[in-house]
Design a protein around this nucleic acid. Sequence first.
DNA 1: TAGAAATCTGATGATATGTCAGATTCAAAA
DNA 2: TTTTGAATCTGACATATCATCAGATTTCTA
Lengths: 220, 220
Amino acid sequence: MDGGSQTTARQTFDQNGRAVGRRGLQTRQRLLEATAELLREQGMRDLRVVDVARAVGTSPATFYQYFKDVREAILRLSEQAAEEMPDIVNLIDGPWRGQSGLKTARAVVDAVIRHWDTHEAVLRVRNLSADEGDPRFRRVVRDALSPLVDRLSAEIRRAQGAGRVSPDVSAAAAAASLVAMLERMASYHAQLENRGVTHSKLVETCARILFQTVTGRSAP
Amino acid sequence: MDGGSQTTARQTFDQNGRAVGRRGLQTRQRLLEATAELLREQGMRDLRVVDVARAVGTSPATFYQYFKDVREAILRLSEQAAEEMPDIVNLIDGPWRGQSGLKTARAVVDAVIRHWDTHEAVLRVRNLSADEGDPRFRRVVRDALSPLVDRLSAEIRRAQGAGRVSPDVSAAAAAASLVAMLERMASYHAQLENRGVTHSKLVETCARILFQTVTGRSAP
DNA sequence: TAGAAATCTGATGATATGTCAGATTCAAAA
DNA sequence: TTTTGAATCTGACATATCATCAGATTTCTA
């Protein structure tokens, strides 16, 4: 037993280490939302604390009350976005055989794309920051993706056990490659759709690559 | 005939539209290299013009003589990095059947990883900027990748013609997915290798996904 | 409703940006 | 070699952001 209530809303602290109350949480959240919005509109490099503050009708000092800097705000947004991941992971736990396996693959592709459509700007910066070596962001990325990777990896090992996937393949690397593909395509799909690839064709194609690589079988 | 010399060194202009001479080109190039170096060390968000200037032993004003802002410098670096792409494209034009096809796939994977190892920081920011909608960066990305995508796409259509790849797959989407996977894995491989996936296993795995998806055949 | 706790902000010193006029360097012509 | 003017560089500056803190304001609690 952990003694907590069902949804253990973690305590939040400000920059002075003091617990934040109801009003403060609300301000903080509005700052986060403005950050996400401006990230979408202006991109990472031109995001200014002043603009975030102005958008919320407050002063920069208020921003710094809750966040060390812009990076930290984006880190928190990344954590909030990651809360959606369990829904995607649940899909992976569906069947991977035959017709319904392909359906599982489609559902996963679709869910990842939807996740990215919702959090595009934040996830992009999250991944960049992780790639640039920031350990806090690496952790968020790992926590968000490893359940996915691990599940796919296990499924691939199963297919290897059945002799349908070559032992020369590393299940972990293959799973990571698939997730890499899904993420990158999710962030890229709008541009492809501008070039004449329909959304459903794109989903179908990714789903089939996913299915094929996970199961070692050609899609039905 | 185009009437130009073999290596048509394009004229370079400064911010006032004046042509840049030998000494200027050298300064400009040193500024670019310092930018790349600092991008590697400090990441995109913390890259300061002052630091770049200091690193070259010159003043910020000199930087602004050659570049409108940091973004433009990174754009030029992206263009320089893209000059390596023909070498990679040549590899794709190798054979795609049987044992030697897998070899082709391996060579491509390896080349993409090497390309990223060399230009990591620049390519990351290039892709982010393109994703954020900057048309100049979108163009650089497209120019760099479309030869790859087009070649793979053509190869996939061939496999579709032979009935080995489902007509439900979009060749363009599949090719884009593969390139997406290759790029993301190239930027991520060091982290995977820290987690116990050896480099050669990783290359082999990506190569097999590539081979399978392009040819519709299981790797030999 | 007084007093305390929580929250917000004006003011500020430090640092970065981006521009321009003028100083410096260089190479070719005299 | 010296002169000359084009190319290159930079000091100085006006503007803007960062990041902090002391103190004002609001909200909560007893």
